[in-house]
């Protein structure tokens, strides 16, 4: 049973609202843990958008990597850094005008590209189970980038252990 289009729209806008709300909380919170929480909410919202767009695999990987792993890392880093646990840290410094300017510029550029591109709508869904296809592609066509990324992660892992031992 396919989802009615109305519900897709409702879901999409709910998820967009969650993402934007989370993002707003992340940049405006004076407390770092709350900012991290806002970031987590925004990331969950993005995963929700992927779900609404029927990209389940990307959505689940988004939750697994960003919400499950990276956000825990961020929370830990905040807790283990001295002085960051204080309740009210200044949320902005003297560069906030420049930051707003750059953000607006970035937004304008992205908007220009998004509107200017002639997006091709794919009429038919890719048939069958996508996961085996992704796996096969990773192990054949994209083997070299895949292995390079693994190597990079391994190097990061070893580096982290070396730093931790000092």
């Amino acid at each position: 049973m396919s989802t009615p289009l109305v519900l897709t729209y409702v879901g999409f806008f709910v998820m967009v609202a969650i993402t934007l709300g989370g993002g707003l909380m992340a940049v405006s919170a004076r407390n770092l843990i709350r900012a991290a929480l806002g970031l987590i909410i925004a990331l969950v919202g993005v995963a929700g958008i992927y779900f609404v767009l029927e990209a389940e695999f990307v959505a689940v990987v988004q939750i697994l990597v960003y919400v499950g792993a990276i956000s825990i890392l961020i929370l830990f880093a905040v807790m283990l850094t001295r002085g960051l646990m204080k309740r009210d840290l200044p949320a902005q410094n003297a560069q906030w005008i420049a930051a707003i300017f750059i953000s607006l510029l970035m937004f304008a550029a992205l908007l220009y590209v998004t509107i200017g591109t002639n997006w091709r709508a794919v009429e038919t869904k890719v048939a069958g189970d996508l996961i085996p296809k992704i796996g096969t592609e990773l192990m054949t066509t994209y083997l070299l980038p895949f292995e390079a990324v693994s190597l990079l992660l391994l190097a990061a892992l070893v580096g982290a252990i070396v730093i931790a031992r000092e």
Partner: peptide
Amino acid sequence: NIGVLWIVAVASIGTIGVFL
């Protein structure tokens, strides 16, 4: 079609709640 992965991914959210 990714049910198992969904369970693994979602289970990790609980950690955040306990930590917070």
